[in-house]
Amino acid sequence: MVSHVKRNVAISRFWWVLCIASLVGALLVLLSLFGFVFVRGIAAIRPDIFVTVTQGIAGGLANAIAGTMLLVTLAVVLVVPVGIGAAIWVTQFAPDRLRIVVRLSIDVLFGVPSIVVGYFLYVALVETAGWGFSLVAGSLALAIIMLPYVYRAADLAFSAVPRDLVEASVALGARPLTTFLRVAFPWALPGTLTGLLIGVGIALGETAPLIYTAGWSNYMPTLAPTHSPVGYLTYVVWTFINEPFKESHQLAYAAAFLLMIGIFVTNFVARAAVEYWASRTRSHA
C-alpha cells in the first residue's frame, strides 16, 4: 500500500517535471527568438537608418518606418467607425436574427486567410479600379484584417456592461442616449481599446496582404491616397534577408527589431488597459 502511494507520488512528480520542463522549453524558445532579433537588430541599428530612405538593397528605413505608421494609422481610422459602430449596433439596436448574422459574418472574416484579403483588393482596387499600388488599398487590407478583432472586443465589452448599472440609470430617468454615452460607453472603452491595440499589433506585423496592395516604394510615402506605392517594415524583413548582401541583411534585422519594439509597446499598452479594466470591474463588483 505504502509503496503504491510512493509510486503514485513519483509518477505525479515525473509528469509535473515534464510540464514544468515544457514551460521552461517554451520560454527558452522565446529567449532564442528575442535574443536573435535583439542582438542582431541592435547591432544593425544606426542612427541614419531613421533619416535615410532605402536605396535598392541598402540605405535606411525611413520610408518603411513612415509607411508602416501611415498604413496602420489610416487602417485604424477606417476600422474604428465600422468595427465599433457595428458592435454598438449589434449590442444596442439589432433584432435577434440580424445580430446572429453580423456575428456570423465576423466569424467568417476570422477564417479568411490574410493573403486572400490582399488578393481580393489587388484584383478589385489595384487592377480593376485602377488605383495602382497605394496607401488606401494597403490600409483597407489592414483594416479588413483588424476588423474582426476590433469588432469582437467591442461586442464583448459592450455586452459586459452590467445590466443593473444601465437599469439604474434608466430608472433615474436618464435618456437612452445619455445612458449609453455616460454609462455604457465609458464602461466598454478600455475593452474596446484593448481589442483595437491587438488589431494594431497584428496590422504592424502583416506582410502577405500588403505585398499586392501597398506594393513597395524606395521613397518617403506621399499622402496621395492612390497611385503611389508605400514601403513598410515587414517587406524589408521578408525580401532583404533573401538578398546575398550584408547591408540588406542588416536592414532586415533592423526592421525586425523595430517591428518587435512596436509590438512590445502596443502589447504593453493593451495589457495596461486590461489591468485598468479589470480593476474597474473589481471596484464595481
Binding site: E206, T234, A252, A256, L259
Partner: peptide, 9 residues
Amino acid sequence: GIPSVVYGL
C-alpha cells in the same frame, strides 16, 4: 504577437 515574418526570419 510576434509577426509571422520574424518567426520566418
